[in-house]
C-alpha cells in the first residue's frame, strides 16, 4: 500500500511537472514566450496583457488564414480600450507604458504568427471555430 501511495505521488508529481513545462502536444513556443515575457511584467495588468494577446492572435489569424479578415474599426476600438488608463503617469512614464503596449502587441503577434505558420491547417480550423462561437466576441469580420 505504501509503495502504491508513493507511486501515485510520483505520478502526480510527474503530471504536475509535465503541465508546468507545457503540454508536449501543444504548438506553443514555450521558450520564446518565456524569453519574451521575462522582466516585462508589471507595467501592464494581466487583464491588459490578455487583451493585447487576444488582439495579437486575431491579427495573426487574419494574416495567415484564408477567409478571416479583421474588422479594422472594431479592432482599433479594442486596442484603444486596452490602452486606456495611465492618466496619472508622467509624460516619460506614458511613453514607457505605450512602449510596453507596443512591445507586447508586436511580440505576441510575431509569436502567434510563428505558432500558426507551423500548423497552419489546424491553427486556422481552430480560429474558425472560435470565430463561429457565439460566446466568443471577436474583432474579425
Amino acid at each position: 500500500m505504501k509503495n502504491m501511495t508513493m507511486g501515485l505521488a510520483a505520478l502526480a508529481l510527474l503530471a504536475v511537472s509535465g503541465v508546468a513545462q507545457g503540454a508536449d502536444d501543444d504548438h506553443r513556443l514555450d521558450d520564446a514566450w518565456k524569453a519574451a515575457v521575462e522582466d516585462n511584467e508589471g507595467v501592464l495588468s494581466p487583464a491588459q496583457v490578455s487583451g493585447l494577446n487576444i488582439l495579437a492572435y486575431e491579427s495573426a489569424v487574419a494574416r495567415l488564414c484564408d477567409g478571416i479578415k479583421l474588422d479594422e474599426k472594431k479592432f482599433a476600438a479594442s486596442v484603444a480600450a486596452v490602452v486606456t488608463g495611465g492618466s496619472a503617469l508622467s509624460e516619460e512614464e506614458q511613453v514607457q507604458r505605450l512602449t510596453a503596449v507596443m512591445f507586447q502587441l508586436g511580440t505576441a503577434n510575431g509569436l502567434f504568427l510563428a505558432e500558426g505558420a507551423m500548423k497552419k491547417d489546424t491553427f486556422c480550423a481552430h480560429a474558425a471555430e472560435e470565430k463561429a462561437d457565439k460566446d466568443n466576441p471577436h474583432n474579425w469580420q
Binding site: A23, D25, W33, A47, S50, Y57, P137
Partner: peptide, 27 residues
C-alpha cells in the same frame, strides 16, 4: 499560463475565448 496571460486548448492552439474568460476581468 499565468505569466504569459494566455490559455491554450488541448488541440495545441491559443484560445482567445478561454484567455478572455480567465484573465480579461482581472481573473
Amino acid at each position: 499560463y499565468r505569466a504569459q496571460v494566455a490559455c491554450y486548448k488541448a488541440n495545441g492552439h491559443f484560445s482567445a475565448k478561454w484567455t478572455r474568460m480567465q484573465f480579461a476581468d482581472g481573473e
